[in-house]
Structure formats: C-alpha cells, structure tokens
Amino acid sequence: MSRAKRIFHQFGSPPWLFRFAGWLIPWLWLVCIALGAWGLWWGLLIAPPDYLQGESVRIMYLHVPSAWMSYSIYLLMAIFGFCALVWHVRAAEIMAMASAPIGAAFTLVTLVTGSLWGRPTWGTYWVWDARLTSELVLLFLYLGVMGLHSAFDEPRKGARAAALLSLVGLVNIPIIHYSVVWWNTLHQPGSVGVDGSSIHPSMLWPLLIVALAAKFYYGANLLSRTRVRLLEENRHRRWARAWVTGGID
C-alpha cells in the first residue's frame, strides 16, 4: 500500500480519527481564540475608521471573514460529500454532514452583519440584488442539506442524499462570487483578490488575522461534531466502550 493510501485509510479509521481529533481540538481552539482576540482587538480598537464610512467599517472584521467562510465551508462540504458518494468513506460522510450547521452559522452571521452594515452605509437593511440573494440561497442550501440528512430513517441514506444535494447546490458558489462582476449590484465588488487588495494595510491585517481565526474555529468545531457522530455510530465497538467507561482520551 502506498504511503498516501495508508494515510487515507488511517484517516477513515474511526478509533484513530476519534482519538486524533480529541487531541487536536484543544490546540485548534487555543489558536482560534488567540488569533480572534488579536485580530478583533486590532480591528475594533486600533485600526482607523474609514474615510467615507466612518466607524461602521468595523463591522467588516466580522462580516467579510464570515462571508469567506460561508462559501469555503460549502466547497469543503461538497468535496467531503463527493468522497462519501464515490468511495463510501464514512469519515468523509460524517464530516460533510458536520460542516452544514457550521456553514449555516457563518452564512447567518454574514447576512445579519451585512444587513446591519448596509443600513448606515447604503441606507437600507436589505435589497434583492444578485449578491445578497445568492447568499440567502446559500443559507437555504445549508438548511436543505441539514433537513434532508435528518429526514431519512436510515442515517447513511440521509447523508448520501444530502451529499448529492450539496453537490447540485455547488452551482451557487460561482454565482455568489461573480455576482458583483456579472450583474449591476448594490453590493460593491470584492476588495481582496489574488492580484492584491484595495483595503489599506492598516485595515487589511486585522481582517486577515480574523479570517485565519475563523478557519481554526471551523476546524475545531468540525472535529468536535465529528467525534459525537463517531461515538454514536461505534457505540457497540470495544474502543468506544473503553473510552466511555475508562475516560481515556
């Protein structure tokens, strides 16, 4: 067996993944909280107000990382779902389903903070432009995946149906991203791309730090949800029993 294949199989082994996640989660939380505190302290207290928007620009440090996460998590969920459908990797199936509520949380925060940012800057809480509408569709896709997953009596069948829906919903991701380019929208075009950024460095740095913290939040939360599912499904295995009764992590 090749090295890559062995790692792949090890990752799919429930007791190994359960134990590895249990060891990793506290570290991920630690980094997430440290980076989040640093980035938000910088963004909220140190960074300057915007020349046009004034203080309301501080909502950016929550809104923009959430928006980035909302569609990155969807992409990851679809990739996990794809692996689950083609190779029947149980761990990928669990991780796809565990991603949905976290992605939904980020999407909800994106929509609410965007709305609260839109009122003082644009003059409205909500408009039906392409960017805002496609982000709302993303929330419904997450809720659809979660609903479909729980609608089946047999959890594995539900997970597979939900994974298929997540793959179909993938078409929404380029629509969200390019909506501000393809159509006239109230929402402004993206500020940060591969070719640089139109945000001044004094505001960009705290933004990037919070965005990194958000990635650690997703990692910790995903593994924490994965562990619950792993234990639930392997309750009859000896390692699960040993962990519950012995309390060994």
Binding site: Y51, T124, P189, H200
Partner: peptide, 27 residues
Amino acid sequence: EVLAKHDENYMPPEVAEALAEKGHPLP
C-alpha cells in the same frame, strides 16, 4: 428611494486626504 453605493476601497481618512492632495480622483 435613494441608496448609496459603496466601492471596494477602504482607507483611513489621512490616506484619503494624502491621495486627494496628489490629485487622485476621490469622492
């Protein structure tokens, strides 16, 4: 109804002033 459209530029007021002095077009 009139809504304001924002652009993708974010900067501190001092930077905006410096840019304006150099003759860059800014609102």
